[in-house]
């Protein structure tokens, strides 16, 4: 952090395990997935890796991946309490 300006550098988990904020969990149908990678590009939390596996420690369940998936291969399922 600079003395003149607050600067944050990218770091894993700086705000804790944000996956605990999730209400809906993305569930991927690997049979329907054609591995286009749009979900990974759109994920605002960089929670989807190069193998298109979703890191549920940090996925906040925003559903953007499900919205963007052209194959409708991702469904959002309510988390159980």
């Amino acid at each position: 952090m600079s003395a003149k300006l607050a600067i944050s550098r990218p770091a894993e988990g700086a705000a804790g395990k944000t996956g605990t904020w999730r209400t809906f969990r993305p569930v991927v149908d690997r049979e329907a997935c054609n591995e286009c990678g749009l979900c990974r590009q759109y994920c605002p939390d960089a929670a989807i890796d190069e193998n298109l596996d979703i890191d549920l420690d940090y996925c906040k369940g925003c559903g953007i991946c499900a919205k963007e998936c052209p194959k409708k291969a991702i469904t959002m399922v309510r988390e159980e309490d």
């Binding site: 003149k4 300006l5 607050a6 600067i7």
Partner: peptide, 23 residues
């Protein structure tokens, strides 16, 4: 504190009550 594209970061980012006053 000029933007350094080789070291990406958030500029003028969140500061809490524990540090905002310092700035």
């Amino acid at each position: 504190h000029a933007i350094d594209i080789n070291h990406p970061g958030g500029y003028g980012t969140l500061t809490k009550g524990t540090e905002h006053f310092r700035f």
